[in-house]
């Protein structure tokens, strides 16, 4: 039962990834793509934690944490770039 519910959750998250990727490719302009990228990373992060649970290895949580840090820095860097150039 637990496994079945988790699989359903995986399906929802996977559809989320597909929609966000579609929006990332569609654009139409750079800020819109940045928002799509932000959402995409926010969906991928719990997927990484799910992978850690699936593998049963706590060390994989660090991967998710570092991924969150880098995603945050990336979006802020993009925002600064639109604001006044790097």
């Amino acid at each position: 039962m637990v496994d079945l519910i988790l699989k359903a959750a995986l399906v929802f998250a996977g559809m989320g990834v597909a929609l966000a990727t579609f929006q990332l490719l569609r654009g139409p302009d750079a800020p819109n793509r940045a928002v799509a990228l932000d959402v995409l990373t926010l969906i991928t992060m719990p997927l990484l934690v799910g992978l850690a649970v699936h593998a049963g290895r706590i060390i994989y949580l660090d991967v998710a944490l570092v991924y969150a840090v880098l995603a945050f820095l990336g979006v802020v860097a993009l925002a600064r770039y639109y604001d006044r150039g790097i």
Partner: peptide, 14 residues
């Protein structure tokens, strides 16, 4: 499951 539904809704929202 509820959480992943909200993840999906967020992607649908954009």
């Amino acid at each position: 499951l509820f959480g992943s539904m909200f993840l999906f809704l967020g992607a649908l929202g954009i």
